[in-house]
């Protein structure tokens, strides 16, 4: 709790909640403004912006109600989940790099590197095991999808990788 001597009336644990409420209200405002540009409709019927405009107003009202509820019951117990920031950062960053690399390096090489990072570096399951699983997960899955299931996966576009058909 941070109801400290400086007189701040917001406990530190409530900041994420307040930010969340503000974000919801802003999404509602954005939807409303975007809908007004699209047009709400005419005498013949509703336009493209009608439904999103209603939703935008609805979201803003809900955000205000949520805020008021929080003020009325400041000690309300929620079941909000906590998470490990380092794990989230590592997984998201690796996924972004993988997605960015797929069109250039192809599925096999980029997924091999992705799995090696997660199994070899992060989980430390042993290099031999990590290499074997990564090969199965990259080369094995690539051939399973492209040859058996006839679902194409990206191949490398960078030279010389593209020349050897990776």
């Amino acid at each position: 709790m941070s109801n400290d001597a400086t007189g701040s009336s917001v406990p530190s644990g409530r900041w994420p909640l307040l930010i969340g409420q503000a974000v919801i209200a802003l999404i509602g405002l954005y939807a409303l403004l975007g809908s007004l540009k699209l047009g709400l409709g005419s005498a013949l019927g509703p336009g493209a912006g009608f439904f999103p405009a209603v939703l935008g107003i609805f979201l803003m009202v809900l955000a205000v109600l949520w805020f008021l509820q929080g003020r009325a019951t400041p000690t309300e117990q929620t079941e909000a989940e906590s998470f490990d920031g380092a794990q989230v950062g590592a997984v998201i960053l690796s996924l972004v790099i993988l997605a960015a690399a797929l069109p250039f390096l192809g599925f096999q090489l980029s997924v091999f590197a992705f799995l090696m990072y997660h199994l070899g570096f992060r989980a430390r399951i042993g290099w031999v095991k990590a290499v074997v699983i990564s090969l199965c997960g990259s080369v094995g899955v690539f051939y399973l999808f492209t040859t058996v299931l006839h679902v194409s996966l990206p191949v490398a576009t960078l030279l010389p990788l593209s020349m050897i058909g990776i």
Partner: peptide, 9 residues
Amino acid sequence: PILAGLILM
């Protein structure tokens, strides 16, 4: 960790 890596893939 192995399951998680493969599920992500």
